[in-house]
Design a protein around this nucleic acid. Structure first.
Length: 557
DNA sequence: ATCAAATGCGCCC
DNA sequence: TGGGCGCCCTTTGA
């Protein structure tokens, strides 16, 4: 690091420099700091001077108030951007992120180590709390035991992991994807909601057939569910405070509820809808708002049922609702008051919850297991997936806590661990990962498949072209297909063998969605360069061409 | 290239 | 108990 010195008549500038990175090869740099003088542009009223040395980010600056001859001290010492201390730095070194050692581990939140050497990073097989075997003879025992217990097979089948991107739509939504839902009967239709409130309908079997309905909501489309009575109809709940019922053919929607009939009256009164669930037996649409209340709408009569019920701490968001698949009167809710709660719909009133499942922080999602409904998986932003093996057991503590990085930055859609509805053993769960891993020099955020019965990481799925985080994931109800929402884009993954089949089929059929790229795409498809396997010619191309069939992956604008 | 903005939530006073 | 402030691996597009 060379030091330049000039004489001026202007205030002396003291620059503190960091030298420890150079391992003292210079003999004259025994001191950690040196004093030099530098030019300072004259100005009348500068309290601060911007550090113009862009490369030295993290450089700290302080300046004397007076414009006279008092020294101005500019510190070029490298400070940690996390804790502002010197002597270490947090941030990416290449594709590896180095944690600040002064903070608790970013992954498991325990002090004494960083993510780099966190034991949970090496092998995520730490069920930190053993499964409880104690029976509690609670009110649920007798009601559901007989219906449910027999439905849980003891033998775990081999997991099939969809780990190859077979098609993708990038720049499909204009804002980040918030939720996904597969069509209940048509195997190739994927619905997606986004932060703007738009609803996408994508036939990923035909890749380029897609529709985006833009007028259904005005704010985040937080949750959607297909009507059990009519699979051409979908209900959506939004941060604009409305529930809509939309016909997928026409895009026509009717509003079932509007929590803000008087429009915008300020931040404190604007009500947003998050959790949503349908109770098919009763023909009810259940929604929960950002103030802790549950609302019920009769889907057929399109009329509100009863009063709103406070089901979580007043003033907090209720982000998830789920009815038990075998006993729909059993409702599971979760929210920002750090609780997941189990309710009996037949006697539902404030504080009537059967159980409160405490978490350390906000609970992003809570789901009963999809077949027997006897297990519960929750995702909390304390970086833990919690598992209750049986709702008949002692629910005071979870059977397992699985450390997993999904504590999110405010700009992301919250991560939710989602069951594999095809797994008869009800142990496979998919969840996006927040922290990245260095894969051959690229920082990628995999989508993790976790066996919640052991806490074991079964598979981590990633594609070198997907550098964005994938917080939204959904496994197909019948096929071995994974759908992911990552930023604005949607991806369909299949197991390798399926991928090969799709690829062979698609190769013979060149699809062009974007005329701008027609020629380029034609070239791409003509050269028959499919030996490059799964890699695209370049990341840039994959994203920028935005076009269509690159090898077998279709990307549509 | 660089930068601001969009934002949710935890924590502090 | 509530308002204000600040933020550790974002993403986008101006």
């Amino acid at each position: 690091m060379s030091v330049r010195t000039r004489r001026t008549s202007f205030p002396e500038v003291v620059i503190e420099r960091e030298t420890d990175t150079e391992e003292s090869s210079d003999e004259d740099e025994e001191e950690e700091e040196e004093e030099v003088e530098e030019d300072v542009v004259e100005s009348d009223d500068h309290d601060e001077i911007e550090n113009q040395n862009g490369k030295d980010d993290g450089g700290e600056l302080s300046a004397a108030d007076n414009k006279g001859k008092t020294p101005i001290t500019i510190s070029l010492k490298k400070v940690c951007k996390v804790c502002k201390e010197t002597g270490h730095q947090a941030g990416f070194q290449g594709a590896t992120y180095i944690d600040c050692p002064m903070k608790p581990c970013f992954l498991c939140k325990m002090p004494g180590h960083t993510t780099v050497n966190c034991p949970h990073r090496v092998a995520m097989e730490f069920g930190v709390i053993p499964a409880s075997r104690k029976r509690t003879h609670n009110s649920l025992d007798y009601v559901f035991e007989r219906q449910v217990r027999s439905g849980v097979p003891a033998i775990k089948p081999a997991f099939v992991i969809p780990d190859k991107v077979t098609c993708a739509v990038i720049r499909y939504h204009s804002r980040r994807v918030t939720c996904l839902e597969f069509h209940p009967t048509n195997n190739n239709i994927l619905l997606s909601g986004d932060k703007k409130g738009q609803l996408g309908v994508w036939d990923f079997g035909k890749v380029y057939e897609k529709t985006v309905y833009v007028n259904i909501h005005k704010a985040l489309l937080n949750n959607m569910k297909f009507s059990p009575a009519n699979d051409g109809t979908v209900y959506t709940a939004s941060s604009d405070g409305t529930v809509s019922c939309t016909d997928l053919e026409t895009g026509l929607s009717t509003s079932l509820m509007d929590l803000n009939p008087n429009g915008w009256q300020g931040r404190n009164s604007w009500r947003m809808l998050y959790g949503m669930e349908l109770n098919a037996e009763k023909g009810l649409v259940l929604v929960a708002d950002s103030f802790g209340f549950l609302h019920m709408v009769d889907a057929r009569a399109n009329s509100k049922i009863g009063d709103s019920i406070l089901i979580h701490k007043k003033g907090t968001k209720v982000v998830g609702l789920h009815c038990n698949p075998l006993q729909p009167d059993l409702l599971l809710s979760c929210g920002n008051d750090h609780f997941a709660r189990i309710w009996d719909m037949r006697r539902l009133e404030a504080k009537s919850c059967l159980y409160g499942l405490p978490h350390k922080r906000v609970v992003n999602s809570a789901y009963f297991s999809p077949l027997s409904g006897s297990k519960i998986v929750t995702t909390s932003i304390d970086n833990r997936i919690r598992v209750w093996d049986s709702i008949f057991s002692n629910l005071d503590t979870p059977s397992r806590e699985i450390v997993h990085s999904h504590d999110f930055n405010r700009h992301l859609t919250p991560f939710r661990a989602e069951w594999d509805p095809k797994d008869s053993s009800e142990s496979l769960v998919v969840v996006g990962r927040y922290i990245s891993e260095n894969y051959n020099g690229t920082a990628l955020h995999p989508i993790d498949f976790i066996d919640i019965s052991t806490g074991q990481l079964v598979a981590e799925v990633m594609d070198p072209n997907i550098t964005t985080i994938s917080p939204v994931n959904k496994l197909h109800p019948r096929d071995d297909v994974l759908a992911s929402g990552s930023s604005r884009s949607l991806f369909i993954w299949r197991p390798k063998i399926e991928y090969e089949k799709v690829r062979a089929k698609v190769k013979s059929k060149i699809m062009v969605c974007n005329s701008k790229n027609k020629k380029k795409l034609g070239d791409e498809s003509d050269n028959g360069d499919d030996d490059s396997g799964d890699d695209f010619s370049s990341k840039k191309e994959w994203h920028n061409v935005c076009g269509d069939v690159l090898h077998s992956v279709a990307v549509c604008r």
